[in-house]
Amino acid sequence: MNKSPKFSPEVRERAVRMVQEHRADYPSLWAAIESIAPKIGCVPQTLNDWVKKAEVDSGQRPGTTTADAQRIKELEREVKELRRANDILKTASAFFAQAELDRRLKS
């Protein structure tokens, strides 16, 4: 099930930038997020997730970057496809080997 993004990447970037720019005006990061989230039209937890993801992508926080996560997803999909193809080839190979043995026995 794919959720369609409610917020465009531009809105997300702007919201994260607002949090980063106004962080010093609040006693904590969460206070800044709680203040800015309603202005964007999202819940604070969503904005917090965006801020964390932006920090990971910029190298300020450890974790898997968006680009790395996308690459991993692509590689996992490719591995799955290759395993499926390998299983098909093994089955076909066994089938043709058995057919060859049957043909030799009948001759």
Rank of each mutant, 00 (worst) to 15 (best):
M1N: 11
N2I: 03
K3D: 07
S4G: 08
S4W: 10
P5G: 15
P5R: 15
K6V: 15
F7M: 14
P9S: 10
E10G: 11
V11P: 00
V11E: 00
A15E: 02
V16K: 00
E21Q: 07
E21A: 04
A24L: 13
D25Q: 04
Y26D: 09
Y26C: 08
P27V: 03
P27F: 11
S28M: 01
S28Q: 12
A31L: 06
A32Y: 01
A32H: 02
A32M: 01
A32S: 05
I33S: 02
I33M: 10
I33F: 01
E34K: 08
I36Y: 01
I36R: 01
A37K: 02
P38C: 14
K39W: 09
P44I: 15
P44S: 08
T46W: 06
L47H: 05
L47G: 02
N48V: 03
N48A: 04
D49W: 03
W50L: 04
W50Y: 02
V51K: 00
K52T: 10
K52F: 09
K53R: 09
K53Q: 03
E55V: 10
E55Y: 03
S58A: 10
S58Y: 08
S58H: 05
R61D: 01
R61I: 14
G63D: 08
T64M: 04
T65M: 01
T65F: 00
T66E: 13
Q70Y: 03
Q70C: 13
R71F: 05
I72W: 04
I72F: 06
I72G: 00
I72P: 00
K73A: 15
K73S: 14
L75H: 13
E76T: 09
R77N: 06
E78R: 13
E78C: 13
V79S: 13
V79G: 09
V79P: 00
V79D: 06
E81G: 03
E81T: 14
E81F: 06
L82D: 03
L82K: 11
L82H: 02
R83W: 01
A85V: 11
D87R: 13
I88S: 04
K90M: 12
K90D: 11
T91Y: 01
T91L: 09
T91D: 06
A92V: 14
S93A: 15
S93M: 14
S93P: 02
A94S: 07
A94W: 08
A97Q: 12
E100H: 11
L105N: 03
K106T: 05
K106M: 09
K106Y: 06
S107F: 04
